[in-house]
């Protein structure tokens, strides 16, 4: 606990993502394009966690997420914790959870789906009792959350 407070205390403004399952860390790093960031980024890998066994944590100075980016994050790992830091204080702390609907976030796996052939947004509904699948609003294809392909963002 003390270690975490130290890490958080080290940025003036920015975002901390906590409770990343360690096996998902590099997927999150890729998704957030951390390799292209110019501000300070600290990554903690394989830290001890009571709930997860091993967890990872990413701390980014001067970075704040849009809802769309958070939805993308929620697709690759549910139940992250997000802390927003302003002036060395945690001003907001919340869970990042998968919304019931995702628009323009992931690709449909069906090549004959209208969304893969028309300039339009994809649209999925979270599917299944354990919420681990997505169902295409248009072609009804069901995709396992572990296998989804995210829509590439420009910039």
């Amino acid at each position: 606990m003390k270690e975490k407070q130290l890490m958080v205390a080290a940025i003036e403004n920015g975002t901390v993502i906590d409770h990343i399952p360690s096996e998902k860390l590099f997927a999150v790093v890729n998704l957030l394009h951390l390799d292209r960031m110019t501000s300070a980024v600290t990554i903690g890998y394989n830290l001890e966690s009571q709930e997860l066994g091993k967890k990872s944590i990413i701390k980014m100075a001067d970075k704040f997420f849009t809802n769309e980016e958070l939805n993308q994050l929620a697709v690759i790992c549910p139940n992250l914790t997000l802390c927003i830091i302003r002036d060395y204080e945690i001003v907001e702390k919340r869970m990042v959870t998968l919304p019931d609907e995702l628009k323009g976030i992931v690709h449909c796996a069906n090549p004959k789906c209208i969304t893969n052939n028309e300039p339009m947004q994809t649209h999925f509904h979270v599917h299944g009792p354990d919420r681990r699948a997505l169902k295409c609003h248009y072609c009804n294809t069901i995709i396992d959350l572990e296998k989804v392909k995210l829509v590439e963002k420009k910039g």
Binding site: N110, C113, I114, N117, E118, Y138, C139
Partner: peptide, 10 residues
């Protein structure tokens, strides 16, 4: 009638 799936919904 369309050959693409989801065309009518769209």
């Amino acid at each position: 009638r369309h050959y693409l799936e989801g065309a009518a919904r769209y």
